[in-house]
Design a protein around this nucleic acid. Structure first.
Lengths: 252, 252
DNA sequence: CGCCGGTTTGAGTCCATTCAAGAGGAGTGG
DNA sequence: CCACTCCTCTTGAATGGACTCAAACCGGCG
């Protein structure tokens, strides 16, 4: 194996390889990217809207999210990032941050200078393609969120988000569909969905009453993923996880 | 000039050059891309969700939009494309369409095979970077739309959308800020904004009463862009139009 | 223990929706 | 040229889903 398990960037190789095949030389180049580890505490900002973006980071552990704040003070969460995600490829390549990136839990990340990413992309078309692909999937998720927030009622929105997160976690090997830790407060769920925390609470209660989810202390437990997906009008196509046409979920 | 004005793809060079500098060789390669012209009538589909995406198209004239349909039959418009935009770089690179693309007016486009785009990207890092950048800006717009739909009230949403479209048209040299043709029906505006056409109508009436917009037969006329931008909580940063730090709009 | 952030629940309000009906244009065909 | 249709816009009235306000509850932690 060329991939030394010890490197912080190993998950990046693993993720990019999903999008586009990489040869040994490409993988080595990724692992050779300059980077430095960083830890952020709960709620700390990685970057703020309007900042110059100098780094792009790989999320090693913990959860993060992107957000924007509108005039009245309302906050919209735009994406939830899980371990293995490239956080902020967007801001860093565009140069100027158009949104905030913030730690949801305490997190560990590997910060890679923007310039290093760019020159690797220039040197290796395959890696460039894989990173491009990663941002395209990100865009696809963003479109689905727009549709979710714009055209589904509160109950479906909540169900949809739970399905997306659990499925992404499963795909990353971090959880099972029917038992996953989602460290989102109800206020954060609301900010993802364009709802108030109070209303999120009521919708969770409703889903609980219907037996689709259960409760553990602080995290959601999904007890009936399939029905939840139906309730949330959830179709995983937009996550582009099943590249060879094999669906990720065995339905029966 | 290397760029023959006669080529259908000239606008593509013009657009990509904004994102990343291209040398003569790159420009020639873009113009040499295989492509065939196509016309679509009002409301015709370019591609539907679930289709295999074989082509990526450059919009030559007319307007198009992307959309998704949710369970209840509700439609969410995800983006409005104007002449000069690369329509469907997203679907085509991801291979499987995760949303519809549809003509809003009758349109002309140049269809470029997916494979040709990919091999050009592989051959020329600069062009690849520019196309990547284009999709990143698209993602940025998508995030702003999520925030718009999720966290702004109806009046602000409408104002925000009008500002975005007029500014993009101005940037493309197709209109002035305070006099622009937007061929969207009120139903389509509603589908962009997560509102019903009836309510869009009321909001337009309101904005008209405040003197921010006027009415011509079928298209919106903006009479006070600056105030409209304030009403819509509009900040153009997310469009990434002002690369050198020069704002596109002279405020005073 | 007592605070504190997050959750839960209730009551009343409001923004946007639904339902419904009419008006205005653009295009078509007799 | 007029009648007719279709689509979009417009307006009113009633409904409802989500919000606001407010209070109580709960678990974790210093």
């Amino acid at each position: 194996m060329v991939t030394p398990e010890k490197s912080l960037l190993a998950p990046m190789v693993r993720k990019l390889e999903i999008w586009s095949p990489l040869d040994e030389h490409d993988k080595a180049a990724i692992l050779a990217l300059p980077h430095r580890p960083r830890r952020l505490g709960h709620a700390q900002y990685l970057i703020r809207e309007g900042d110059k973006a100098e780094y792009s980071s790989l999320l090693i552990s913990g959860f993060a999210f992107r957000s924007k704040v509108v005039a009245g003070g309302g906050r919209q969460i735009l994406a939830v990032e899980i371990p293995g995600d490239m956080v902020d490829l967007q801001n860093s390549l565009l140069g100027l941050a158009d949104h905030n990136v913030q730690a949801m839990t305490s997190i560990e990340l590997a910060m890679i200078p923007r310039e290093a990413i760019l020159s690797l992309a220039e040197a290796s078309p395959k890696v460039a393609r894989a990173m491009w692909h990663e941002t395209l999937v990100d865009g696809s998720i963003s479109r689905e969120w727009t549709a979710n927030v714009g055209r589904r009622d509160a109950k479906a929105r909540v169900a949809h988000l739970l399905c997306e997160l659990s499925l992404r976690l499963k795909h990353a090997g971090l959880a099972e569909l029917d038992n996953c830790e989602l460290p989102l407060t109800q206020e954060q769920l609301g900010d993802c969905l364009g709802l108030t925390p109070v209303h999120v609470n009521r919708m969770l209660k409703l889903l609980r009453a219907e037996g689709l989810i259960g409760r553990t202390k602080r995290s959601v437990q999904i007890t009936d993923w399939k029905t939840l997906a139906a309730a949330g009008d959830f179709n995983s196509t937009y996550l582009h996880l099943d590249l060879e046409g094999r669906p990720l979920v065995d339905w029966d």
